[in-house]
Design a protein around this nucleic acid. Structure first.
Length: 294
DNA sequence: CACCAGGCAAGCC
DNA sequence: GGCTTGCATGGT
């Protein structure tokens, strides 16, 4: 990959393992929306970004070299060699099928607080509605952000959310999850939980700390560990992953704990990558029974 | 109308 | 300890 900086844009030339539609539509991130010109626009780390892909170039619109290295290089996980990861995972015959479906997926490094709230909202919910609730949260309580002639909104800080009442939060229509969002805001704004604390802990200890937040159980904690803290030894098991793992590896109804154990043994440090390829494959092909696998 | 959506907490034994 | 049930809201 060659990186070029022009007057207005940052351009990635022939990036390997980089497909924006797969990166932003694989359910790890809820704030980027596709437009009809093969581009996605969204907000992360208090910056708006339009990113487009054509031929073998990826353009980050209006992004300077400084902003690129300050924010987007790490956010887009450009320091990770996915070719090597795919090669290792491809030794497994199921993964060999799943990987091509999710070609170009990257596991983003998203802001911790935003990821916590986003996956609290994800509980027993579907992706379009999750995005809607987060959008209303940002429009109602985030800061305005001007970018390429339009107004966007930052993700509201823990302190801002902590200052709200349960009644104030009703307008985002999060349902029973609103009280959990408040609990998370209290724990982040008073320092009970912080990125610094989590970074000092092992993955399983960090998971325990995250699960002290109401609304954060095993699955949500795994998503936070994977999609924000890049703990790739995490393997979030949701309904899709449960179903695809049962179909491919167990051939019978299997409880989530056993699936997790199995994945941790099989994929180890590459659990999170394996999970993303499997999730994308299962969802893209709507695999719900044995006959759907081809 | 029932059922489900990238689950979790609380209440039961 | 594990197992069951209720949960807000919106889409099919």
């Amino acid at each position: 990959m060659n990186i070029k900086f022009t007057d207005n844009n940052t351009i990635l030339q022939t990036p390997e393992d980089f497909k924006i539609s797969h990166i932003f539509d694989c359910g790890q991130c809820f704030r980027f929306n596709s437009e009809d010109d093969n581009s996605y626009t969204g907000v992360a780390f208090n910056k708006a970004l339009k990113i487009s892909q054509k031929y073998d170039e990826v353009i980050l619109h209006g992004v300077s070299e400084k902003e690129f290295y300050d924010v987007w290089y790490n956010y887009l996980d450009l320091g990770t060699d996915y070719t090597e990861i795919k090669k290792t995972l491809g030794n497994d015959s199921i993964m060999k099928k799943a990987i091509p479906a999710g070609e170009g997926i990257r596991i983003l490094n998203q802001e911790l607080w935003e990821t916590v709230v986003s996956f609290i909202i994800s509980a027993s919910n579907n992706i379009p509605r999750i995005k809607g609730i987060i959008e209303r949260l940002c429009e109602s309580f985030g800061e305005e952000l001007e970018y390429m002639g339009k107004t966007y909104h930052t993700f509201p800080s823990p302190e801002k959310i902590a200052s709200l009442s349960l009644e104030d939060l009703k307008i985002i229509r999060a349902g029973f999850r609103d009280k959990y969002i408040l609990d998370a805001a209290y724990k982040f704004s008073n320092g009970d939980i912080s990125e610094e604390k989590l970074n000092c802990l092992s993955t399983s200890e960090a998971k325990k700390l995250l699960m002290t937040i109401k609304g954060v159980g095993s699955k949500v904690a795994d998503c936070i560990l994977l999609f924000s803290l890049h703990r790739t030894d995490s393997f979030p098991v949701d309904v899709w992953i449960k179903r695809i793992m049962e179909l491919c590896y167990f051939d019978e109804e299997t409880d989530i704990k056993e699936i997790s154990r199995f994945a941790e043994n099989k994929f180890a440090e590459l659990c999170g990558y394996a999970q993303q390829y499997l999730f994308f494959w299962a969802r893209e092909n709507k695999i719900t029974e044995k006959e759907d696998i081809c």
